[in-house]
Each structure stands twice: as C-alpha cells, then as structure tokens.
Amino acid sequence: MRQSLLEVADLNVSFGEEDERHHVVKDVGFHIGRGECYGLIGESGCGKTTVLRAIAGLNSDYDGSILLDAQKQPKARRGAGFLRRVQMVFQDPYASLHPRKMVEKVLREPLQIHGFDRQRQRIDEVLVQVGLDPSFRYRYPHELSGGQRQRVVVARALIMEPEILLLDEPTSALDVSVQAEILNLLTRVQRERGLTYLLVSHDMAVIAHVCQRIGMMQHGRIIEEMTSEAVRNGQAQEQYTREFLDASAAFAAALEGDAT
C-alpha cells in the first residue's frame, strides 16, 4: 500500500453547549495517497463539510488526529508549513471573495504572508492556469461572473503551490453550465501539478468524475468506502449507498430527459 499523504483517524466533532451537544462527526477515518483524489459524499447535514473544516484547521474543536506525512497536526492554529501544503476551495464564490478586494490583492496577500518572490509573475501565471486573462487582476469580485469568481478562488488556493487541495462542494453554487468548466479545470490542474484532492460533494456525478476512491457518509459516519468503478458498476454493499446511488442516477436521468 502506498504511503498516505493525508490521514484522518478517529475524528469526532461536536457542536453546541453541554446540554444540547450534537455529535456531528463520529469516528471518521480515512487516508489519501499522494496524487490521489478522495471523495466524501453524502446528503446535506451528514457532516462532510465539518470533516473538511476540521482538517483545514478552521474548526479546532475536534477529537482525533489529522496527520500530514505521518505528522500529527496541532488542533489550534496550523503552522505555515501546513498551510503552504494544504489549501482550500470554498463552496460559494460569492461569499469566499472579499467584496472590496481586487483580484490582484486577493492573490498577492498569500504571497506576501509567506514571502514569495516574483509576485507579479506568479499572479499572471496562476491566472492563466485557471483560464483567466491576466487583465482580470484589476477587477473587483462584483465585476466577475460566478464561474470567473470560482476560478479566482481556485487561483488563490493554487498560488501557494500546495500539494493538497480541500474542495468543499466547489461547483454546487454555480450554474449547471459552469459546473462542468470548473470540474474540468480542477481535473486539468490536478494532472498538471500532481495534486492530491479531498473533494466533498452531495453530487455523485461530480465525485465520480474526479475521484478514484469514495467514502459514503451518513449521519456523521463513513459507512462504506468504494472505488469509482464500483460506483459506476453499481456494486455498493450498504443498503443506504445503493438507495443514494439509485436516487442520484434517477435524478441525473430526469435531468437528461429534460434536456432532450
């Protein structure tokens, strides 16, 4: 078995005060090898985004361990070493870009924080890589479309040259027509840079398009892990997974029917 780059073990997350504590994530564990794409799928509220935020260090209130290269990460503020290797793409590009910051500033700030050289050149390069003309650098978010914004968000994550991208439903806030563009961008960038992805989504089509291995989540647990071939061939073991797959297949078919 390959050495895993990112490993999550016995992850438990609860929210709320003592009397009404909700146990949102229960004993979640998985590992992702270098260059692999791992997908977490499940219905809304099953805790998949919470897992992602705990890994990212945005929620330090968890139990369990998160290992990067077999090194356990501290719960509180993650060090610069972690952040340079792990970056995140957020769900809603309308909320994750500061409304008063130019694209240029959004992309320059991480470079300044981590003391990168050739800042101007790096910004141009990353804009081209995500499919935006370098002239977009002097635009404000409200001058961009949803898809363009999400490209900027991807550029912001890529500019630190990370090894792992945490993708939190990167297409669900976008128009259907734009979703495919962003997914293709993500798969292309992954090939070009040899990135490792952890993708969270409720959309089986998105997950199966990008990921090799998939974890099915229900009520805060990973109930089943499978390969994307197994998903395509309908070889799920658990009853819930089969229902979920059937439901999304039926939904996809209904959409196709609408389209024709």
Partner: peptide, 17 residues
C-alpha cells in the same frame, strides 16, 4: 464568520492582518 476570513486564515494571515 465569513468564508473570505476563513480563506485568509487558511493562508496564514495574522489576526492583525
């Protein structure tokens, strides 16, 4: 609580920044 502040934290920005 916004995502853009979360993004800044992911980039290692200090509280002051």
């Amino acid at each position: 609580k916004s995502d853009y502040v979360a993004a800044m934290r992911m980039q290692g920005a200090s509280h002051l920044r």
